[in-house]
Structures are given as C-alpha cells and as structure tokens.
Nucleic acid binder design. Structure first.
Length: 556
RNA sequence: GCCCCCGUAGCUCAGUGGAUAGAGCAAUGGAUUCCUAAUCCAUGUGCCGCAGGUUCGAUCCCUGCCGGGGGCACCA
C-alpha cells in the first residue's frame, strides 16, 4: 500500500517536473518501486531515473534530481529522499507510516492478503491422479501438497477453484492389476502359478486377493479367467482407490471431483474427441494406426491415438478428458504431474491448441522427484520387489504438518531430499515448528494478558500507537505488509514455497522481537499497542499456515 | 542423440535485470530470578559450474560447453 502511494507520488512528480520544463519528455516508462536489499539504501527505491534515461536523453542523476524536486508529500510519509549510486532514488519512510498495515490486518483478519486476481474465473487444478494400482509413495505426496496449496492460493486470489483427481481406471495397467490379484488368488488356493515379472509384486496384492477370496457371494475361481480378472481388477482398483483417498485425507488433501477415465469411454467421449479432430483434418491414418498431427502444434512428432489393433492410447483419453474439462466451463486448467511425465507436455499442449485454447489457459506444473532418506542415507525404494516406504508410513511417522511443510520448502522444480529423522526433529532443521511456535507463543501471551494481567485487547489510540516505534517493531510491521504481494506472486507463479519462506522470515523477526522486548509490561499505554502488534503477527502466521494446510497450535 | 530440471557458503537451499548475493544447519562463545529456551545474540565463509552474448547494469535473460538427476513407445 505504501509502495503504491510512492509510485503515485513519483508519477505526479515526474509530470510536474515535465510541466516545469525540467524533463524533456512526458513519456514515462512503468515505474517500479522496490525494497532495496541494503537497509542503508532506505525503505523503498526506484530505478525510474535509469529506465527513463534514454527517453529523456538526460543523465539518470539529473532526472532523479528533477523528479525528487517535485515530489509532493502532504501526508508526511517520507522522512527523506536521496539520490544514490547510478541514479536510484531512495525513500526513507517515516516509521509510524507503516502502522496502517496493522489496522488492515485487524480489520480483514483471515482475508488479509486476499485479492481478486482471478476475478471469479473458474479454474481446475488436477493433481495426484495416481493409477489405482498400488499405494501412494512419497513423490505422490509432494504432488498432492503442491497441488492442494496451489489450489488454496488461487482460491485466495479470487478464482473459483475445483480440485480434481483423474482415475486411470481403464486400460492395460488395470488389466494387469486384475491379473495380479487373480493369480494371487489362485496361489492362495493352492494352485501353482507362474507369476509374471510385469505383474504387481507388492504384498498389498495378497491382501486384496484374500479379501476377494473371502467374498462369499461369488467363487472367483469358478469363473473363467478373463471374467475373473476383470472382476478382480474392479475390486482391486476400488479398494486401492479407497486407500488412496484415505491416505490423501491423512495429508489433509481432499478433492471436489474424482473423474473416471472409464466413464469417458462409457459415455463415448473418447470416440467423440477423436471424431472431432478427424473432422478438423487433424487425424490421419498410417501403418494401420490413427495419428494426431501434434507436430504441427509444436510437438516433435505426430502421436498415435488409435493403435493398429484398434485400441485407443492413453493420449486419446487424455485429449477427451481435457476437452471435457473445458466443456465443463473451466477457463484455466492446471495439471500437476511428476517430472517423469514432462515429455508428455508438448503433445497435450498440442491437443489443447487444436481445441482452440490459448496456452495461458493451460499450465502443467511438474514436481521433481523426492529422495526419501533416513539420517542422510537413502531409504530403499525398490518397486520391483514391491517393498517401499508408502506415503502413509511417512505421514504417520512424521506427522501431517511436518510432511506438508517440508514438501513446500523447496521450489517444486527442484529435487527434494526428505529425511525422516529431520522431519521428526524439533529443531530449526525443521522449520514447521519454528513457525508454529510463533503462533503458540502469541496465544500464550494473549492468555496471560487476559487471565493474569487483566490487559484487554483493544484498538489503541494514536498516542499509544506512536509508542510502537522500536526498530524490531517496524521491521515486523513491514514484513507483514509484504504478505499480500507474497501471496499474489506465489499464486501468479504457482510457487507455494514462497509462502513457506515468507513465514520463516516473519517467524524469525517475531522471535527476535520477543526475546528483546516484553509485550506485557506494567505500562498499559505500552502493553496495549504491543499486544495489538503481536495479535496481528499471529493472524498473519495463522493465515499463512492455513494456506499451506498446516495447523496453527494454541500451545506446543 | 534429443528433451526437461538442477548447479549459489563445508552441508541443505532461498534469491521472477539493480547498489555491498542471503537463511538454516554444522563450529565457537554467550543469554533463562522476566510473556513457553521448539527461542535469542555474537563470531565468517563465496571465480553465484565454465565461456561468450544482450543491457547503463546479469546469480537472474540468450547461446555453447561441463557436471548431477530424470525422461525420451502404436505403455500408462
């Protein structure tokens, strides 16, 4: 808010300077006002003079001088300005000018930092979408948390957001799953079976086989093999999906829609999508297969949608699925995938271009892989042997809050080392507690104020607010003032880790303040504004943690 | 061979064109009669992988190379 006012003042000053003949052009580039890294350079600074140099045909320092000479500051916001370096204009803001941020936080509460970037657009975030052929692993957990948090950010920024899970319940993998279960059923009933290597090896297959055998309604072994496999497949996919749903719920992730691939086939939407592309002349036949001309939409080659054996590919149903998404009225579509699918992006983007949708209506977020460690050593993740640490195991070992926070302490396109021991440690290696502790500490102060000190939570008058002038207090307020722009940047760039880092920074400032200054003093005129300050901190911490799906405890 | 991600302090990582590149961990020393020590304070370390280019200005953008990881089906 202060940044915006400075920007306005600069613009008016530039105009005034031009009218006074001190600038040669009224053509001003967009004015950027940033916080300098070094405190000695003031609270805010602009490079306006440098970016205007070529238009004005003047040295940056002369432009800076002309502009600063015409700055009008009736509100007394600015303590002083200076021209420095190659032509920066630095602003030193009056410390008390930051105080309105506190009022905004108290007024808006949980809505502080929200904006209307999305303007009510409908957006769908599709994430996880793991095949229901086995339990979720840690990598799925990362995708789940990143997707969930991106959805939360977009919601906070004025989008109408739906979270969706796409169930790959059609096709070969499901058939393989059914076969795996069926063979285990046979094995458990004493038959000797040849269990193929490409079948699912995990112990969970035995569990499902047992439950199939325990089902009294129908003797699976009496059916012919294909019918039995199909029955096993349905049953297994259903059970596994239930497990996935439960695991995600354990991570605090829930979906608005679970969308079935099989349903796309059952309702003829896959055929319709292929037909539509064919009508557009974008599908041709070659070698007995049907190809989509993805190369003409930026992919490196054309891709098969119907194989020469008549079966459609996964790509075909994905085209149909995304067509369906737009038909459901989503203006923006976001897919969160594991980075191992990155090669798939160009062809789906091609398909979406063929639907006449612009690239900014479709975005794929790729999450890089997670290395699961224990005390710095890799935990074996041998899928072949079917033995691996599941997401469920991890969450139950380290807890939801720590798991979620750790997933968000890296840029999603960086690989992540997830160390189980670190995740459990209650040290600053594990910053979730560091941030939560702020919330708990302030809750404790508030209890103490009410119960022992008899200090009421009020909106202090101007006179007592003026006592909120310690450097640590101003720092805290300034940091809280950064929350709205952090939220909009995180949403815009779909980088939820920015919120996590923001919270760690805010927490550090609070802990330092807490150690240096007492909130509850014998001086009511001082305690009241300080209480007002720390309650604001607590609200912002709570907002941010809530955004990340992490709890904000009253005590620890 | 082609594509994607990464390369920043001893380690793990922030830093979407600005001035003197930051944090945590690790190391050393200190702080608790006082609102929760899961906290704080002090002490220092960098050819921002390399080489070009664009720019008034590059860790950031472009090109090439080097190193690490992942992906390249009429599989999903």
């Amino acid at each position: 808010m202060i940044k915006e006012r400075i920007r306005q003042m600069l613009l008016e000053a530039a105009r005034a300077a031009y009218e006074a003949g001190e600038l040669s052009s009224a053509d001003f580039p967009p004015i950027s006002v940033e916080e300098p890294k070094a405190g000695a350079h003031g609270d805010l600074a602009t490079n306006f003079a440098m970016t205007s140099a070529s238009v004005q045909k003047m040295p940056p320092k002369a432009i800076a001088q002309a502009v600063t000479d015409h700055i009008s500051d009736p509100g007394g916001l600015i303590e002083k300005t200076e021209i420095a370096g190659p032509g920066f204009i630095n602003f030193f803001i009056h410390p008390l000018a930051w105080h309105p941020i506190l009022d905004a936080i108290h007024e808006k509460g949980g809505a502080f930092g929200a904006n209307d970037l999305g303007q009510g657009q409908k957006v769908q975030v599709e994430f996880v979408s793991a095949n229901p052929t086995g339990p979720l692993h840690i990598g799925h957990g990362r995708g789940a948390v990143v997707g969930d948090t991106i959805a939360a950010l977009l919601l906070f920024c004025g989008y109408r957001v739906d979270r969706e899970y796409y169930i790959n319940d059609a096709g070969r993998q499901i058939h393989t799953l059914g076969k795996s279960v069926y063979l285990r059923c046979c094995e458990l009933s004493g038959q000797s079976v040849d269990f193929p290597e490409d079948a699912y090896q995990g112990d969970y297959i035995y569990e499902i086989a047992k439950s199939v055998l325990a089902d009294q309604e129908q003797d699976i072994l009496a059916l012919d093999a294909e019918a039995a496999i199909s029955r096993c497949a349905r049953r297994a996919a259903g059970e596994i999906l239930e497990g996935i749903r439960a695991d995600l719920q354990g991570l605090g992730v829930t979906f608005d829609h679970w969308y079935s691939e099989q349903q796309l086939y059952d309702t003829g939407k896959v055929q319709a999508a292929i037909e539509s592309l064919f009508q557009q002349g974008l599908i041709y036949e070659k070698d007995g297969a049907k190809w989509f001309t993805s190369a003409s939409f930026g992919d490196e080659k054309d891709r098969v949608v119907v194989r020469n054996n008549g079966q459609t590919t996964y790509f075909a149903s994905d085209i149909a699925y995304h067509r369906e998404k737009y038909e459901r009225g989503y203006q923006r579509i976001i897919d969160v995938w594991g980075a191992d699918h990155h090669g798939y992006v160009p062809r789906l983007t091609a398909a979406i271009s063929a639907m006449g949708k612009s690239p900014d209506q479709f975005r794929v977020i790729l999450t890089q892989l997670v290395n699961l460690l224990r005390q710095g050593r890799p935990v074996s993740m041998s899928t072949r042997a079917g033995k691996f640490e599941t997401l469920r195991d991890v969450v139950s070992e380290v807890g939801r809050d720590a798991a979620r926070f750790i997933f968000l302490t890296r840029h999603h396109e960086s690989q992540l080392d997830f160390d189980l021991e670190v995740a459990k440690a209650q040290t600053n290696d594990n910053p979730v507690y560091y941030v939560q502790y702020v919330h708990a500490r302030i809750a404790s102060i508030r209890r103490k104020a009410a119960e022992e000190k008899g200090i009421r939570e009020t909106t202090p008058d101007a006179e007592s607010m003026a006592r909120l002038n310690e450097p640590e207090e101003i720092q805290l307020i300034k940091q809280m003032g950064r929350y709205p722009e952090t939220v909009s940047a995180a949403a815009d760039l779909m980088e939820p880790h920015r919120i996590a880092y923001y919270l760690m920074d805010l927490a550090a400032l609070f802990h330092a303040y807490y150690n240096k200054h007492k909130v509850l003093t014998d001086d009511p005129g001082l305690s009241a504004p300080r209480l007002y300050l720390v309650i604001a901190v607590q609200k912002v911490i709570c907002n941010g943690l809530h955004m990340l799906g992490v709890s904000a405890p009253e005590s620890m």
